[in-house]
């Protein structure tokens, strides 16, 4: 597989949220606005790229029997780095995302890529895989957050889209709205896929 293919697979064909249905807990929980989706997506991408980098470079050193604890220690370290930096420099985002930043540790997307890809592939493809998968995850969270913010509040990225007369569909930014938006987007993706065949 070429590097370009490694990169684009995460955006669409193997998109973490919409195709593999991985990492749904943060995807559903924090996407009450487009900005939250982007913030969570970039934080996850950073952790994913760094952990893929370290796991791929240590793949011949880490014995198979302790690989899972090793991966978890590596991932947890980068998550803590993200958490500290976010609190120090993006305080509002830190408050909005709250508990879901430390919970990136248990995002099965990251452990999944470390186990299934980075531990078996050289450095460069692993980093590219991490960037692609991470951006695909960010894209999914951004779309989900945009749809929910648009209908639930009537704004997009904080800018008013529907005029003052718009009665917001509050349900969309409540937890059930996450499932409804997710289901509709999944159905749309599957429809596009079946038409392409």
């Amino acid at each position: 597989m070429s590097l370009a293919r490694e990169f684009t697979k995460g955006l669409w064909r193997d998109n973490a949220v919409f195709r593999l249905l991985l990492g749904l807990c943060p995807a559903l929980a924090v996407t009450t606005s487009a900005v939250n989706g982007l913030g969570m997506g970039f934080a996850t991408t950073f952790v994913l790229v760094c952990s893929n980098f370290v796991v791929a470079s240590l793949r011949k050193v880490i014995p198979a029997r302790v690989r899972i604890p090793s991966f978890i220690v590596i991932i947890a370290s980068f998550v803590t780095v993200v958490q500290l930096c976010m609190e120090a420099y993006f305080y509002d985002l830190h408050k909005a995302l709250g508990i879901f930043i430390p919970l990136i540790v248990v995002n099965c997307l990251i452990l999944g890529r470390a186990e299934a890809y980075a531990s078996r592939n050289p450095l460069l493809p692993s980093v590219v895989d991490g960037v692609g998968m991470g951006l695909g995850f960010t894209l999914a969270l951004f779309v989900l957050g945009s749809v929910r913010e648009l209908f639930g509040v009537g704004t997009l990225l904080g800018f008013t889209v529907f005029g003052a007369g718009y009665q917001p569909l509050i349900l969309m930014i409540l937890p059930p709205g996450a499932f409804i938006a997710m289901g509709l987007l999944l159905a749309g993706m599957n429809r596009i896929e079946s038409l392409r065949k």
């Binding site: 240590l58 302790v66 090793s70 220690v73 370290s77 930096c85 420099y89």
Partner: peptide
């Protein structure tokens, strides 16, 4: 070997975290 590798990884993680914590303590 198992013990050594895991210990080294944890020690490296601890080192990096202590550096980041020190750098962000004031701004936080």
């Amino acid at each position: 070997r198992l013990v050594l590798v895991l210990t080294l990884i944890a020690a490296g993680a601890g080192l990096i975290l202590s550096l980041v914590e020190r750098a962000t303590r004031e701004p936080i």
